[in-house]
Design a binder for these strands. Structure first.
Lengths: 132, 132
DNA sequence: TATTGTTATACTCTATAACTATA
DNA sequence: TATAGTTATAGAGTATAACAATA
């Protein structure tokens, strides 16, 4: 007892960093950061998420979301449109190029995840723990 | 398929952040950050770890380690002594106050981890995945 | 009045480079 | 010549506050 590898927080931090680094490396070919990829994924769900919702889901400040969306919009991967029911909100719509890139990115993520030991049971456990 | 909660990286990041936040909150009473706590834990193992070793284990820059050790030393929780076999290296020794605080901190971490769903099996899985 | 998104700015955190001492 | 630790500084990343538009 007492070693840092007994600490769940330590283990989660290490695993998250390793997983993130592997994903970033895999997405580098596509000129996509993990954040951009995850934001694209959220925008692609079709749910009417405000940028503030995205901020909460990605644990980021709303002002950071603005910048990431700027980057993706500048590259023509998504577009901001006004939500019809509440014109303060922006509805993020993936362009065809964005959808294609997201497909490629997903395939890459899946291949990198297969290299992570026990990824399937780990995912199940985390989903339960986080309430998804 | 395709939702962010399918992404192992996303799940690990969320879980790590949640776990870290809970730990920080629990350690706040002791005026200890999670980093300081984890460094103390590593220093307490008795292994002759250089500050560079600590940097690698904590995924931090060596210059960050200097500052954290400064903070802990200023509070009288540990002391830098020169390693006898290689006088370039610093051997970090916990003071009695440091040992006592570490005991308290560990107890707090254990209690907060018990609130994390399936923490035991999660820890086992992560240990295996990370090769500990 | 409150909320969404945005911008500009200040702040914090981290990494880089240069130095001392030991090897 | 290389490595451990330190310091000062530059750079990146983040949050804060103020604003316009909409509710």
């Amino acid at each position: 007892m007492g070693a840092p590898q007994d600490s769940l927080t330590y283990l989660l931090l290490k695993a998250a960093k390793r997983s993130l680094a592997a994903l970033e490396a895999e997405l580098a070919d596509l000129d996509l950061t993990a954040r951009q990829y995850l934001l694209l994924t959220l925008a692609a769900t079709g749910k009417e998420l405000s940028q503030q919702d995205l901020a909460a889901k990605l644990d980021l400040d709303p002002t950071i979301i603005v910048k990431i969306v700027d980057q993706l919009e500048d590259r023509g991967l998504l577009e901001r449109t006004r939500a019809t029911d509440d014109r303060r909100r922006h509805q993020l719509i993936l362009t065809p190029a964005g959808k294609q890139l997201l497909r490629d990115a997903r395939a890459r993520e899946q291949s990198v995840e297969r290299t992570f030991p026990a990824s399937a049971s780990l995912r199940d456990l985390l989903r339960n723990a986080l309430g998804y």
